[in-house]
Nucleic acid binder design. Structure first.
Length: 752
DNA sequence: AGCACGCCGACT
DNA sequence: GTCGGCGTGCTC
C-alpha cells in the first residue's frame, strides 16, 4: 500500500494538476483551476468544463495544463461536460492563431471554431422511438393475433419484412396507432427503445453515382501536381489559375479521391453563393454519404448532427462556406478553397478572419495540401506564387475546347454625346439583345448592387474625382457638400462643373442606376420579352432563388437581370449574350481594390456566356473604356491586369506590399465618436514606427448606420508583426467610452 | 456576462 | 436616516 501511495504521490507531483481555462464570457483572459483527483486521468486540453466563477458556475474550455499558477487561491473544476474533448489541440491552436492575428478574444475565436449547437451544454442528439421484434417467429407464439387484432398483425408483418422501424414510420406505413404498438409491447412481441437519429439535411435528395471523368492533359497535370504535393511531408499551398469552364471541380474531386485512398479526409470551401444544390450534388454524387454539407442555413439540430458525423469519422469530406474551414476532419489530406478571390471568405464580425488565410494556416499546422482555385486570382494569392510561397498551376483551356467569349466594350461617353441624353442601354447592347430574342436564345444582364456608390462621374467625358495622394475615388458627403478621401482624409469641395479642362460639362453627377429602374427601361424596350430580376430584394424565401434559375434554365425567362448573385458559377448553355449595364459602378468605389474587383467581376460575368454550342458574346458598357482593368477584362488577360495592378499597389504601398488595418468607431454621438477616434490615434501613434502610414479619423464611406455615426482610421504597414504588437498593446490599454464602440479589422476587405 | 461595492438623490 | 439609481471593478 505504501508503495502505491508513493507512486500516487509521485505522479501527482509531476502530473499537471492545474488547468488553464477560458470562460464562456469574452474576458480575453485565462483562469487557473485545480483539477480534482477524480478528473485527473480524464481532463485534457480541449475539454469543456464547468467551473465556479465568482458566485456562480459557468462553462469554459481547458486551453492548457500546468503545475504552477501565479494565483494562490485556486478553486477546483466542478465537472467535465462530455466524455471527450470538443476541440483537438490543432483546432485550439488555430483558434489561438486567429485570436492573435486578428486581435480578437480567444473566447470568441473558439466560438467561431465550434458551431453553436456543439457549444450548448445539454445533449443535442435527437432520439426517436424505435421498434424491434423480440422474436423471429412471432407467428408461432401468438397465432390468434391474426384473427383478433389485424392491425397488430399488420405491424408484425411489416416489422418482419423490414427488420425494425422507427415508431413514426411504422405508424405511417401500417396505418396503425401508437396504442397497437404499445399493446404488442405489453405482449412482449416487440420492444420499444429510444434510438439516436441522424437529422440528415439531404435525406430526401436522391443521388446518382458518378465516376471519375477522363481528364484533359492540363487537368491531369494539375492533378499530378496536387498529388505530388500531398505526398510531401510539408506541402506548400497551390494556386490553380484556371479559366471558367476549365474543369477545376473534376480535378478537386480526383484529388479528394487520392486523399481517400490514402485514408485521409478533405475540406472544400466554397463561397456562400456557390453552395447551390448543383455544387453539392456533384460532390455527393461522387462520394455519397462520405460528404457532410455544412450549409449556413442548416437547422441547429442538423448542424449538430453533421458535425458529429464528421467528428466520429462517418463523414470524411466536408463542404461548406467559410466556417467549414473548422470542420473537425481528422487526418486532413486536402483543403480546397474554391473561388479563392471571393470576398465572402472574409468574416465581417469579430473575429474578422479570412477563411482562405485560415485555411493556409490550418494546412501549415496539419501538414496538409491547400489548393486555392479561381479564374481570377486575388492579387495577394498571385503575388505569393510570384514570390515562390505558393505553387502555381495554370489551366488555360476550357474542357470542351469551346472558345472563350468575345468581349466588346461600349463607350457610353460617345453614346451620351450621340443621343444627347444617357440611356440605360446603348444602341449596340439593345441590338444584340434583340438579336438573341429573335433567335430564342437567352440573355443575362448584369448590374451592380443597388446604387449606394457615392462617387461623382461626368457623363460626358467619364471624369471621376480622385484623391491625388491615394488614387482612389473621392467619396461624396452630403453633409457640407464635400468630397473626401477616406484613406488619407483629404477634403475637397464639389466642383460646379466637370474639372476636366477639355470637358467642363455641368452635368457632373452621381454614379448609379438602381436595378428597379433598369428593369422598367428594359421592359419598355422589349415589351414582349419575359424579364426576371434577381437580387437580394426579389429572391426572398427558401427556394425563390432556385425557382428563378429553374425557370431560366427551361426557357421560361428570356432575360435574366441580376446582381452579383448571377455572376458566379451558373452554367446555362442557351445564354449567348451577357450584358454589363455599367462597369463603372464597381470601378469607382472609394476603394483601392476597385480595379481588382472590376476585373474579377467582368471576367466572372463573361464566363457565363457561351457555355453551349453557340459562341458567347459579352458587351460591357462603360464611361471609362480605357481603364486598364476594363481593357484587361476585354482581352480576358489576367497577366496584363496583374502586371499593371501590382505596380500600382507597389507604388502606393497598398496590399499585398503592406497590411491594411481599418479601425472603425461608432456611436450615437458624432462628436464623441470622432473624439474617441482621435484619442485612439494619439494612443497608437507613439507605438508605431515610421514605416507605418496612418490616416486621420475620417467619416466612414457609410457615415451613418441606424443612427450610429461611424468614423474610421486606416493603418498600413509593411511590417505586420510590429503593427500587430502595437494594436495588441492599444487594445489592452485603450478604453473607449461606453457609448462608443470600436472594432479592429485586420486585412480589411470591405471598407464600409 | 453577472454580481458586488460605492457614492449621490427622493422618499418614509 | 434609508431605498435605490447605475458607474466601476472583479471573477482563478
Amino acid at each position: 500500500l505504501s508503495t502505491w501511495q508513493a507512486i500516487n504521490n509521485y505522479t501527482q507531483c509531476i502530473m499537471p494538476n492545474i488547468a488553464n481555462v477560458i470562460v464562456d464570457i469574452a474576458l480575453n483572459r485565462e483562469f487557473d483551476y485545480l483539477i480534482p483527483d477524480h478528473l485527473c486521468d480524464m481532463i485534457d486540453i480541449g475539454f469543456r468544463v464547468t467551473v465556479p466563477f465568482g458566485k456562480r458556475y459557468i462553462a469554459g474550455y481547458v486551453v492548457g495544463l500546468s503545475d504552477t499558477s501565479e494565483c494562490v487561491q485556486l478553486k477546483e473544476i466542478q465537472r467535465c461536460i462530455g466524455s471527450q474533448p470538443v476541440m483537438n489541440p490543432s483546432m485550439l491552436r488555430l483558434a489561438q492563431w486567429i485570436s492573435h492575428y486578428y486581435i480578437s478574444p480567444l473566447e470568441s475565436c473558439v466560438q467561431s471554431v465550434l458551431p453553436s449547437p456543439i457549444r450548448k451544454k445539454n445533449n443535442q442528439f435527437k432520439e426517436q422511438y424505435f421498434v424491434e421484434l423480440t422474436h423471429k417467429d412471432h407467428k408461432k407464439i401468438d397465432k390468434d393475433i391474426y384473427k383478433k387484432a389485424p392491425r397488430q398483425a399488420k405491424i408484425l408483418d411489416l416489422l418482419h419484412s423490414s427488420g425494425s422501424l422507427f415508431m413514426t414510420d411504422l405508424i405511417k406505413t401500417a396505418e396503425a396507432s401508437p396504442q397497437s404498438i404499445r399493446a404488442l409491447e405489453r405482449k412482449g412481441l416487440v420492444s420499444i427503445t429510444s434510438k439516436q437519429v441522424h437529422r440528415n439535411p439531404l435525406r430526401d435528395v436522391k443521388i446518382i453515382k458518378t465516376h471519375p471523368l477522363s481528364l484533359m492533359p492540363q487537368q491531369q497535370a494539375a492533378l499530378d501536381a496536387i498529388k505530388a504535393s500531398m505526398d510531401e511531408k510539408k506541402p506548400r499551398a497551390l494556386l490553380i489559375h484556371g479559366v471558367t469552364g476549365s474543369g477545376k471541380t473534376e480535378v478537386y474531386m480526383q484529388s479528394i479521391e487520392y486523399a481517400r485512398r490514402k485514408g485521409q479526409g478533405a475540406i472544400i470551401l466554397v463561397p456562400e453563393i456557390s453552395l447551390t444544390p448543383q455544387t453539392v450534388d456533384r460532390f455527393r454524387s461522387r462520394f455519397g454519404d462520405e460528404v457532410a454539407v455544412l450549409h449556413s442555413h442548416l437547422a441547429d439540430g442538423e448542424r449538430h448532427d453533421e458535425w458529429h458525423r464528421i467528428r466520429r469519422g462517418e463523414a470524411v469530406i466536408a463542404i461548406g462556406p467559410r466556417s467549414a474551414v473548422f470542420a473537425p476532419i481528422s487526418n486532413l489530406g486536402l483543403l480546397v478553397v474554391d473561388e479563392e478571390h471571393e470576398n465572402s471568405y472574409k468574416q465581417e464580425e469579430s473575429p474578422r478572419y479570412h477563411a482562405r488565410d485560415v485555411a493556409i494556416m490550418r494546412g501549415t499546422f496539419e501538414h496538409c495540401t491547400v489548393v486555392l482555385g479561381t479564374a481570377t486570382p486575388s492579387l495577394a494569392a498571385y503575388y505569393n506564387t510570384q514570390k515562390g510561397k505558393f505553387g502555381l498551376i495554370k489551366m488555360n483551356h476550357r474542357v470542351d475546347h469551346r472558345s472563350m467569349p468575345l468581349v466588346k466594350i461600349v463607350d457610353m461617353r460617345i453614346e451620351a454625346q450621340r443621343e444627347g441624353k444617357v440611356y440605360v442601354l446603348s444602341r449596340e447592347l439593345t441590338e444584340a439583345i434583340q438579336a438573341r430574342l429573335d433567335r430564342t436564345e437567352q440573355v443575362i444582364l448584369f448590374l451592380n448592387r443597388r446604387g449606394y456608390s457615392s462617387s461623382l462621374i461626368c457623363p460626358m467625358c467619364g471624369f471621376v474625382a480622385e484623391c491625388d495622394a491615394c488614387s482612389i475615388s473621392m467619396t461624396y458627403h452630403k453633409k457640407g457638400n464635400v468630397l473626401r478621401c477616406h484613406i488619407c482624409g483629404h477634403l475637397q469641395h464639389v466642383p460646379e462643373k466637370c474639372p476636366n479642362p477639355k470637358c467642363q460639362d455641368p452635368g457632373f453627377r452621381y454614379v448609379g442606376v438602381g436595378t428597379q429602374k433598369v428593369e422598367d427601361v428594359i421592359q419598355k424596350v422589349f415589351p414582349k420579352a419575359v424579364i426576371k430580376r434577381m437580387d437580394t430584394d426579389t429572391t426572398v424565401g427558401k427556394n425563390a432563388h432556385a425557382r428563378v434559375l429553374g425557370d431560366f434554365r427551361v426557357g421560361k425567362i428570356d432575360i435574366l437581370l441580376g446582381t452579383q448573385m448571377i455572376a458566379k458559377g451558373l452554367d446555362f448553355p442557351n445564354v449567348t449574350l451577357v450584358g454589363v449595364i455599367s462597369a463603372d459602378v464597381a470601378l469607382h468605389m472609394p476603394d483601392f481594390r476597385a480595379g481588382e474587383r472590376t476585373f474579377q467581376l467582368l471576367t466572372q460575368v463573361a464566363g457565363r456566356a457561351g457555355r453551349g454550342d453557340i459562341p458567347g458574346e459579352v458587351i460591357i458598357q462603360t464611361y471609362t473604356p480605357f481603364h486598364p482593368s476594363i481593357q484587361a477584362a476585354r482581352r480576358l488577360d489576367y497577366d496584363a491586369f496583374y502586371d499593371q495592378e501590382i505596380e500600382f499597389r507597389r507604388e502606393l504601398n497598398y496590399p499585398p506590399f503592406s497590411r491594411l488595418v481599418c479601425v472603425t468607431f461608432r456611436g450615437m454621438n458624432e462628436a464623441k465618436v470622432e473624439e474617441t477616434a482621435k484619442f485612439f490615434l494619439e494612443h497608437i501613434q507613439p507605438l508605431l514606427q515610421d514605416h507605418v502610414t496612418i490616416s486621420d479619423p475620417v467619416p466612414a464611406p457609410i457615415a451613418r448606420i441606424k443612427g450610429s455615426f461611424r468614423y474610421q482610421i486606416m493603418i498600413r504597414s509593411a511590417k505586420i508583426k510590429s503593427l500587430n504588437k502595437a494594436l495588441h498593446h492599444v487594445s489592452e490599454s485603450f478604453k473607449a467610452p461606453k457609448d462608443v464602440k470600436y472594432s479592429i479589422d485586420i486585412d480589411a476587405v470591405n471598407i464600409l
